[in-house]
């Protein structure tokens, strides 16, 4: 069993999660405001804003995986099952929508929305597997 207890793993998770989400919100709001308000050129500057918005999300994924490793074994099982089911649903949706687009059944879908869709699928799966306490 890990030396980290469930409580200390949860505390560590929330201490890292909240500031990361605040940074993500600030980066996306400020980034989209900056790009919409001003006529931003060149492309590398737009790409830099996009990378700045993505970095907190990558950090969040790192925090989430660290929590999987540090939490107790039952929660780890529920979280990993939820993560796997959420990933499966999202990848399935990507294939389905990709083929529908390829065969001209539907119009273009913004790739961005697969990110939030994954987190929704992951959250719902985890809830169904372990109840509200496991979220």
């Amino acid at each position: 069993m890990s030396q980290q207890t469930f409580k200390s793993a949860s505390k560590r998770y929330w201490r890292a999660f909240v500031p990361t989400m605040v940074v993500y919100l600030i980066a996306t709001l400020a980034g989209s405001f900056y790009l919409k308000t001003f006529d931003v050129e060149p492309t590398w500057l737009q790409a830099t804003v996009a990378v700045a918005c993505t970095l907190p999300m990558l950090l969040f994924l790192f925090i989430q995986i660290r929590y999987f490793l540090e939490t107790d074994e039952y929660n780890r099982m529920i979280q990993l099952k939820g993560f796997a089911i959420g990933s499966g649903i999202t990848v399935g949706a990507i294939f389905l929508i990709g083929f529908l687009q390829m065969f001209h059944v539907i119009d273009r879908v913004e790739v961005f929305w697969f990110g939030p869709a994954f987190f929704i699928a992951y959250g719902i799966s985890t809830y169904l597997l372990g109840g509200r306490q496991c979220l």
Partner: peptide, 29 residues
Amino acid sequence: LADQLGVSRQSVNAIETGKYDPSLPLAFS
């Protein structure tokens, strides 16, 4: 009990109700 074992309350509940079988180290604890 969860505090003494260093696990969550829902883990204790899952073990008690037979929904989850603990690992050998946790069973020893």
